[in-house]
Amino acid sequence: MEKICEVKGCNEKSFQTVPADLAGKVFSLKEEKTKVHLCKVHYKEYKKNTKKERETQRMDW
């Protein structure tokens, strides 16, 4: 079964899985989960909009 992007209104094929808490800050998601699937277009937008937060998380490790 092929996964589909979990951003509301998008039915594209899934490209990458990301943490739902960060993705929820950028997009309106279909449902609450711990991880969500994003298509290529939404993944690129997610990376651009969460860059600083992801860098901060990596520094905390």
Rank of each mutant, 00 (worst) to 15 (best):
M1L: 12
M1W: 12
M1F: 10
E2Y: 13
E2K: 14
E2D: 12
K3T: 14
K3H: 15
I4N: 06
I4G: 08
I4D: 02
C5Y: 13
C5S: 12
V7Q: 07
V7K: 04
V7C: 06
K8T: 00
K8E: 01
K8M: 02
K8W: 00
G9R: 01
C10V: 06
C10F: 10
C10S: 07
N11E: 13
N11P: 03
N11F: 10
E12T: 09
E12S: 13
E12A: 14
E12V: 09
E12N: 13
K13V: 13
K13P: 04
K13H: 12
S14G: 14
S14M: 14
F15Y: 15
F15K: 15
Q16K: 15
Q16E: 15
T17W: 15
T17Q: 15
T17G: 14
T17H: 15
V18Q: 12
V18M: 13
V18W: 11
P19A: 12
P19W: 15
P19Y: 15
P19V: 13
A20Y: 14
A20S: 12
A20L: 03
D21G: 01
D21S: 09
D21C: 05
L22M: 12
L22C: 10
A23V: 11
A23T: 10
G24M: 09
G24Y: 06
G24I: 09
G24L: 11
G24T: 06
K25T: 05
K25Q: 09
V26S: 03
V26A: 04
V26P: 00
F27H: 02
F27L: 09
S28R: 05
L29S: 05
K30S: 11
E31I: 00
E31A: 12
E31V: 01
E32C: 05
E32H: 04
K33G: 01
K33E: 10
K33T: 03
T34A: 11
T34P: 02
T34M: 13
T34S: 14
T34D: 15
T34H: 12
K35C: 02
V36N: 01
V36C: 09
H37R: 13
H37T: 07
L38A: 06
L38Y: 06
L38F: 11
L38D: 01
C39G: 03
C39V: 04
K40T: 08
K40V: 09
V41I: 02
H42D: 07
H42W: 06
H42Q: 05
H42F: 05
Y43A: 11
Y43T: 08
Y43V: 08
Y43N: 12
K44W: 02
K44I: 02
K44E: 07
E45W: 00
E45K: 02
Y46L: 05
Y46E: 02
K47I: 08
K48Y: 07
K48C: 00
K48S: 04
N49Y: 03
N49M: 10
N49G: 01
N49A: 08
N49E: 09
T50C: 05
T50I: 08
K51N: 05
E53D: 11
E53N: 05
E53L: 11
E53K: 08
E53G: 08
R54W: 06
R54S: 08
E55K: 02
E55N: 01
T56L: 10
R58D: 00
R58M: 02
R58H: 06
R58F: 03
R58V: 06
R58I: 06
M59E: 07
M59D: 03
M59H: 03
D60W: 06
D60H: 09
D60V: 04
D60P: 00
W61G: 07
W61D: 09
W61R: 12
W61I: 12
W61V: 10
